[in-house]
């Protein structure tokens, strides 16, 4: 082995060891690295009332109730991960992206009568869709944003704004490129 080869193997060995160490550490701490807990985790093992947790999930359609206590708006909504649902109470202004069917992360504490949030963060998904296309998909009944993620991009990403305008003007005809949901 030349000195260069020896150095190369030395570097490879060091990087491999370091990578393994990092992987093991991440594995060990993975429950602390997650940003939020899901409603079913909270239901299975309720955190103590003095501990701040981040609860993440989807806002259940039709569960949002908003009222005004003096100046501050107070909202109640259910957050679900498909298996369990937790009612969240929040005093304050919700983020712009908040809507039924949206993923949110609520920061707060778990009480007997539900989750009291001090902060609500909106989480958006990785789908990027022009407004007109979304409108057209909703009009044609192919997708309701309150009940789930949008259909796969292949079904609509050839759809242009003009096509979308046409569909919007004439909601009976199906969107040209959109296949069944």
């Amino acid at each position: 082995m030349t000195r260069k080869t020896r150095r190369l193997w030395l570097v490879i060995a060091c990087v491999t060891c370091l990578g393994a160490a990092a992987a093991l550490m991440l594995q060990a701490f993975s429950s602390d690295i997650v940003f939020f807990v899901t409603p079913s985790q909270v239901e299975a093992k309720p955190p103590p009332a003095d501990r701040t947790v981040r609860l993440g999930g989807m806002v259940v359609a039709g569960s949002v109730k908003q009222e005004k206590q003096g100046e501050t708006p107070v909202s109640r909504f259910d957050v679900t991960d498909g298996q369990a649902a937790v009612t969240v109470r929040f005093e304050g202004i919700l983020p712009d992206l908040f809507r039924e069917g949206q993923s949110v992360v609520a920061v707060g504490t778990m009480h007997k009568d539900g989750f009291v949030a001090s902060e609500v963060l909106a989480k958006h998904d990785e789908t990027y869709m022009p407004k007109e296309v979304a409108e057209a998909l909703k009009k044609s009944g192919k997708w309701d944003p309150r009940f789930g993620p949008p259909p796969s991009a292949e079904s609509w990403n050839t759809m242009t704004a003009q096509d979308a305008q046409k569909t919007k003007a004439n909601p009976d005809s199906p969107a040209p490129a959109a296949t069944k949901p």
Partner: peptide
């Protein structure tokens, strides 16, 4: 949104 394995989940106009 863009992965090596799957189709991008983004409108081609973006």
């Amino acid at each position: 949104s863009i992965t090596l394995t799957g189709a991008p989940t983004m409108s081609s106009s973006m």
